[in-house]
């Protein structure tokens, strides 16, 4: 089977609004997240990713009523992230209809949580979210948390490898430097992480065209998370799939 690239709509949510920033800063309100998610679902997106981006400040995930609406009319895999600290938090969002959880901050502070989630719900449920910023003073990338505000000191490739050893079934890899710009993804970062781990890497940050997605796929991404490109209606899911097929990249039809 030729590997198809999965297209994931990434919806960052703040207080019930879909928001989008640049490099995770300067958030703009765009509307009702459910309306956007439903449109992408009907147009053939492969998965939906909801991130409650203020949750980690308040230590709670606040997506429950968005999730409830999602289960009513969106029938594809749903991943939820933001502010998930404990196994109980994970259980709560899964019971509300999520299929997977994406965890960043709590995984850095308490890596055991990765193993706990994988053992309780299977590794396919445990997505390790890594916010990567290129180091200024040295080679490589450093993992950030609290929505790109705090630095962990962890090397991204090393952390990805360790996360998978602990039980992560996928890596959601966001390039903070490229995020929101739509000028291309950080292909070298994608390549290094994809080469280092045997699990799928979901590349995020910077996709501005089908060509950018094709380049990420070539670098080893199994999936690409899209936000500005779709939310600002620079293209549609249908157009994007056509363009990818035109460039020889397999997608779900």
């Amino acid at each position: 089977m030729a590997d198809k690239i999965r297209l994931i709509a990434r919806l960052e949510v703040k207080n019930d609004y879909l928001v989008k920033g640049i490099q995770l800063e300067g958030l703009r309100k765009l509307g009702d997240p459910h309306d956007f998610a439903k449109e992408y679902y009907e147009a053939g997106i492969d998965e939906i990713l909801y991130l409650d981006i203020v949750a980690s400040l308040y230590n709670r995930n606040n997506l429950s009523h968005i999730l409830r609406r999602t289960t009513e009319d969106i029938f594809i895999p749903i991943t939820v992230g933001g502010g998930l600290r404990t196994l109980e938090d994970v259980h709560a969002v899964l019971a509300q209809g999520a299929d997977k959880v994406a965890i960043n901050t709590a995984a850095i502070k308490n890596p055991e949580l990765i193993t706990q989630v994988a053992q309780a719900y299977g590794s396919q449920c445990m997505v390790l979210s890594i916010q990567a910023k290129r180091r200024r003073d040295a080679e490589g990338w450093e993992a950030y948390y609290d929505n790109g505000r705090e630095h962990s000191g962890l090397d991204v490739v090393t952390w990805a490898r360790r996360g998978v050893a602990l039980g992560a079934g996928e890596i959601l890899l966001t390039s903070v430097d490229r995020e929101g710009l739509g000028r291309g993804m950080e292909d070298e970062l994608i390549r290094q992480v994809a080469d280092a781990v045997p699990v799928p890497v979901i590349a995020a940050g910077g996709a501005g065209s089908a060509g950018d997605i094709a380049a990420a796929a070539k670098a080893g991404a199994a999936a690409v998370a899209l936000s500005s490109l779709l939310h600002y209606r620079r293209t549609s899911v249908g157009e994007l799939k056509q363009a990818l097929i035109g460039q020889g990249v397999e997608v779900r039809r």
């Binding site: 009513e72 019971a95 209809g97 299929d99």
Partner: peptide, 13 residues
């Protein structure tokens, strides 16, 4: 198992 998504799919129709 988590029944919610299965339940909602039937209710959808």
């Amino acid at each position: 198992s988590n029944l919610l998504s299965v339940q909602r799919a039937f209710e959808h129709f």
